[in-house]
Amino acid sequence: MFNKQYSTTNTLHSSVKIGGVTKRIIPCLDIKEGRTVKGTNFVNLIDAGNPVELAAIYAQQGADELVFLDITATIEKRKTLNELVNKIAHHINIPFTVGGGISSIEDVSMLLQNGADKISVNTAAFKNPKLINDLAKQFGSQCIVLAIDTKKEEDGEWYVYLNGGRLKTKIKCFDWAKQAVDLGAGEILLTSMNNDGTKQGFALDITKQLAEKLTVPVIASGGGGTMEHFEDVFKQAKADAALAASVFHFKEITIPDLKRYLQTKNIEVRI
């Protein structure tokens, strides 16, 4: 009886599109010294173009958001990043997130003032979880994205890695994600190091675990190589958004084609 009621309710709801927020497609631009780069398995960087031009093209093609990760973020480069963020904010009409080496309220304040909509924190937040709480209080959870680089070890568990994937920790991915959400993180950007750069598909198991158990949206990252991979990460793993870089930069998949494909698979996307 309960099940029957539930399915009836569900049908009614779907007919009036309750909860109509769409799945998001997010191109990621890794930035090194002002240029877009993309490697495989976190190494072998290849130059992939001017970030402002690429951002404008993606926005025009129907990307739902953009993520910029400064992979060479150092204190002396911070000014360059802020200038780049300011240029992006002037030119693109969709939301964007900036990450890479962010470790203080001041860093975040500068990036938001320059027009970033959200920022992502990773290593600094792991080392000082209170940072998430401080940032959420100051700027609101909606602009605090926690990025996690995770790797599945031989014991079958997913562990948190730091410093761009170079430093292993003993903490399990889910535990850290849960703690971060409790501290005020508004979204999780989950990158599977096993999958990143392989184009063999997203890590469905850990994505599903986080997407189903956390109360905030989960952005799946790492491994998207075909349109079916995106379908899988939305349908099977219940991701709220999917992020990819090289497949878009090298035009192996275009955003309009991908969205039309997802639409034919009854996945709600913005077209």
């Binding site: 927020v21 508004g186 949206p217 709220d240 913005r270």
Partner: peptide
């Protein structure tokens, strides 16, 4: 307010009609 029937995430983040 999400319920056991409607488990949407809060905040709503993204594109809607």
């Amino acid at each position: 307010r999400p319920s056991s029937f409607i488990k949407n995430k809060v905040p709503q983040i993204g594109w809607n009609n």
